[in-house]
């Protein structure tokens, strides 16, 4: 079990609606997973650097030369709502951009 309020605040942070059954499942499952993860506490990681990339820096970088952009019709072909060639979204709750 994790604290249900943690599940709620993380769901809010991740912008995920959870139905009541899913919420219960996640409270239980995340609890089990986090309990399993506690085994990492046994590992001494003093002065161990992190590995955020599996290989050493490859330093790929690109020349600052333009490549043709995607045709606008292609870029917007999957848009769920649009106004002309702009993406359209409903207002922010309570106004203010």
């Amino acid at each position: 079990m994790v604290d249900p309020s943690v599940v709620d605040s993380v769901a809010a942070l991740a912008r995920l609606d959870l139905d009541p059954a899913q919420r219960e499942r996640l409270i239980s499952d995340l609890g089990k997973i986090l309990a399993h993860i506690e085994m990492l506490d046994r590992v001494d990681t003093t002065d161990v650097p992190i590995t955020s990339h599996p290989l050493d820096a490859t330093d790929v970088d690109a020349a600052d030369e333009p490549i043709a952009s995607l045709p606008v019709a292609e870029g917007l072909r999957n848009a769920p709502d649009r106004e002309g060639d702009l993406f359209r979204v409903p207002p922010v709750l309570g106004g203010d951009g």
């Binding site: 809010a12 991740a14 912008r15 995920l16 609606d17 959870l18 139905d19 979204v89 409903p90 207002p91 922010v92 709750l93």
Partner: peptide, 12 residues
């Protein structure tokens, strides 16, 4: 009706 619910419902 609003952006916040658009996110949470679309993803939910």
């Amino acid at each position: 009706p609003d952006l916040e619910h658009l996110y949470t419902r679309s993803r939910g």
